[in-house]
């Protein structure tokens, strides 16, 4: 039963990773941009929530909508004002630009909030749990996290499959020049993709802030886990990112169970093993 508990905790943790990975996957899929600042965007969202909580004295859950809107607008402007030009210069220049943005965010947060760890206090839900048996305990908050990530992925799937803008996203992912020939303004579209990606990572950032603590330098860790989730699941597969996150989560929880502190190591090893034996990921889209 101890292992059952590990698997359940791993699945719940996977929900959190998926919230970080979904936007990363979307941005790479639509515009082939490797965004090295994605983890820092999440951390930035947590700090924005912290500021709102501090000034309005409300539960961080209620800040979620506002943080998402702020991050979406920020994402759109960043893409239109900077990243589109970096992408014109070339894919490598674009990666470097996101790397620079990551460093700028980290240092601005350091300047504004010090290096001390901060946390978001969501009240009783943080410690509430359902006891299945003596060894299997499900926390309400982790459960809420994975439910949220399933809802987000489902919403994203509906958006991509059923709406005019969503179809334009997928058309651009398939062939950017052909999409332009259909009247799709790719610069606006890229802005929208970044806006959606940052709105999703905002949820991940706030949830991480509630679950654990965060500091200005927390972003790159989040980025690595998110990337591993995306690669394990398979590039371009939405539900693959959730499965990837879950596999990573289970590996980490079990690793920590074997020996405290081994979680990360085992997580990375599982990632490397999948990369070695199935480099296209578990649910890679098969096209062409």
């Amino acid at each position: 039963m101890v292992w059952v508990n590990d698997i359940i905790q791993g699945i719940l943790l996977g929900g959190l990773y998926a919230l970080f990975a979904a936007g990363l996957s979307l941005v790479f899929g639509v515009m082939r941009l490797v965004n090295l600042a994605h983890g820092d965007f999440g951390v930035m969202a947590a700090y924005i929530s912290l500021v709102i909580v501090g000034s309005l004295n409300i539960n961080p859950f209620y800040t979620l909508i506002l943080v998402m809107i702020v991050m979406a607008i920020f994402g759109y402007l960043l893409q239109r004002g900077l990243l589109n030009y970096a992408m014109d210069a070339g894919p490598l220049q674009a990666i470097l630009a996101t790397f620079g943005i990551a460093i700028i965010i980290q240092n601005l947060l350091l300047e504004g909030f010090t290096a001390n760890s901060k946390g978001l206090d969501a009240g009783v839900i943080e410690n509430a749990f359902i006891r299945i048996s003596d060894q299997v305990v499900i926390g309400w908050f982790p459960l809420l996290t994975i439910i949220t990530s399933v809802i987000v992925l489902f919403g994203l799937q509906l958006f991509l499959g059923r709406t005019r803008m969503g179809r334009a996203f997928r058309a651009t992912a398939d062939n950017q020049r052909a999409a332009q020939l259909m009247g799709i303004d790719n610069r606006h579209l890229y802005g929208m993709a970044m806006a959606v990606a940052l709105a999703i990572v905002a949820i991940g950032g706030v949830f991480i802030g509630i679950r654990t603590t965060f500091s200005p330098s927390a972003g790159p860790f989040r980025l690595i886990f998110a990337y591993e989730a995306v690669i394990i699941g398979g590039l371009g597969s939405l539900w693959g990112t959730l499965v990837g996150g879950i596999i990573l989560g289970i590996a980490q929880v079990m690793g920590d169970h074997i020996q405290q502190g081994w979680g990360m190591l085992v997580g990375h090893l599982v990632f490397l093993a999948i990369l070695a034996f199935r480099p296209q990921g578990l649910f890679a889209k098969q096209v062409q």
Binding site: R167, R170, A171, D174, N175, A178, V287
Partner: peptide, 14 residues
């Protein structure tokens, strides 16, 4: 330059 992952109907909608 058709959109390979989109269906025929979706290609037309785009």
């Amino acid at each position: 330059w058709v959109f390979p992952s989109l269906t025929v109907a979706e290609n037309l909608m785009v």
